[in-house]
């Protein structure tokens, strides 16, 4: 399971974090991978300068504005789903 957390705190909200969250939700469903991705909102990821922030399996990404959501999904989330490796999964 790939763990995705989207920040919707003050700074991220002002820069489109909530929209990014909704777009990622739609993209995940459209790709039919909702069973392999755990998508959650977070109140603050404590990196406000880079807002909007997204955490993928603990790895932070900044500047994930709504217009970048689709690219972000293809580049950072989908490959992890395809590889079948996510946080909490045992590699051995």
């Amino acid at each position: 399971m790939v763990d995705v957390r989207v920040c919707v705190g003050s700074s991220c909200h002002l820069r489109g974090g909530a929209k990014t969250l909704k777009l990622l939700h739609t993209l995940i469903n459209d790709a039919g991978v909702q069973g392999q991705v755990s998508l959650r909102a977070d109140l603050c990821l404590a990196s406000c300068l880079g807002a909007p922030n997204v955490l993928v399996d603990g790895e932070p990404f900044g500047g994930v504005t709504p217009d970048r959501a689709e690219d972000f999904f293809r580049e950072r989330i989908l490959p992890k789903v395809r590889n079948g490796v996510g946080a909490g999964d045992r590699l051995d």
Binding site: S10, H13, G17, A18, A41
Partner: peptide, 22 residues
């Protein structure tokens, strides 16, 4: 989640948790 304000949160024992400034 659908409001134009950021969502709030839940912490055990707290009556309300919201975003701050906005």
């Amino acid at each position: 989640l659908d409001s134009d304000l950021p969502p709030g949160g839940k912490i055990r024992g707290m009556d309300l948790v919201t975003e701050g400034i906005l």
